[in-house]
């Protein structure tokens, strides 16, 4: 087509350079730093000692808590991201409807996003307190339970609770992405479809979903990355306990690095996590059908 004078192969690169330079600048050194630390013995206070090859990796892999945390991280990510997408698609569709109070509803749905993760986790930790927490108080008042539930005392309750909190804080971000996506769908398509006698479900399957696809993909990939690395909820609510039963990799990493004073091992864990995420996104993007430009 009309790739005019400005269509030189250089143009896209010129457009990309500012963002590339900024990102490289900020990410480059820390990445190098992590790789370097993971290959060295590092003291509690962060001093680099001898080169130790893959010792840090070996030590970490040998720890049964690491393997348990790894599996739990997969469940955590699957639970939170899956739950989030399942909740967000219908919510976004509703918020895209024209109804009274839509502005208020949208603002409410986005509200959890206005509180930093750490604070959200603190509030929920407090709400789930055995004796003074409002969750138990409310449930008891309503007669749902007769004596307080010890929410965070065992992982049987604590972990699902943490996943639910994770879903709650991820919904606003995801719904917003979907709303942005839905707003790019021209309304006359639906009118045409309605005239053709398409049911609501057919409209959703045949029109909305395909148009939303790139946005859903983006939401999944980004959410997986954020949730996989998400630290405050679990750390604040249970610190990976009791008895390591709610550790995910990132809380385990934090404990190793900053509680038990082994920054080298923490760096190794970080690289393992990076590799896992990288493989995931490669795989995921490979499986997805190519999103054509301007389909």
């Amino acid at each position: 087509m009309a790739r005019t004078a400005s269509g030189r192969p250089l143009t896209p690169w010129l457009l990309i350079v500012p963002s590339l330079a900024l990102a490289l600048f900020i990410i480059g050194y820390p990445l190098y730093n992590i790789v370097f630390q993971s290959l060295h013995e590092v003291s509690r206070f962060g001093l680099i000692k001898d080169f130790c090859g893959l010792d840090n990796f070996r030590k970490v892999m040998a720890d049964p808590v690491f393997m348990a945390s790894l599996w739990r991280t997969l469940w955590w990510t699957l639970g939170v991201v899956g739950g989030t997408v399942l909740v967000s698609v219908p919510v976004a569709l509703i918020l895209h409807q024209d109804f009274y109070g839509r502005g208020v509803a949208r603002t409410i749905v986005m509200l959890p996003w206005s509180v930093s993760l750490t604070m959200t986790a603190i509030v929920w930790r407090w709400a789930f307190n055995d004796e003074y927490g409002m969750v138990n108080v409310t449930l008891q008042r309503l007669g749902v339970i007769s004596s307080p539930i010890h929410w965070l005392a065992t992982s049987n309750w604590a972990f699902p609770v943490e996943i639910l909190v994770g879903v709650l804080v991820s919904v606003p971000f995801t719904v917003t992405i979907f709303l942005g996506g839905l707003s790019s769908v021209p309304g006359d398509i639906y009118e045409a479809a309605r005239m053709d006698g398409a049911t609501a479900w057919q409209q959703f399957r045949k029109l909305t979903l395909p148009l939303l696809r790139p946005f859903i993909n983006m939401a999944i990939v980004l959410n997986v990355i954020y949730v996989f690395n998400s630290f405050p909820i679990i750390w604040v609510m249970t610190q990976g306990g009791p008895s390591n039963s709610t550790h995910i990799l990132v809380t385990y990493l934090y404990e190793r690095g900053f509680r038990l004073g082994k920054p080298g091992e923490a760096a190794a864990i970080s690289l393992v996590m990076l590799t896992m995420l990288f493989c995931f996104t490669l795989l995921y993007l490979r499986i997805q059908p190519k999103e054509g430009e301007g389909s």
Binding site: I27, N229, F231, L253
Partner: peptide, 16 residues
């Protein structure tokens, strides 16, 4: 760009 998102921020801060 994706990789810039993938590193666990907790460790990244020391490098930063």
């Amino acid at each position: 760009l994706l990789v810039t998102q993938m590193l666990s921020p907790i460790l990244l801060v020391i490098g930063l």
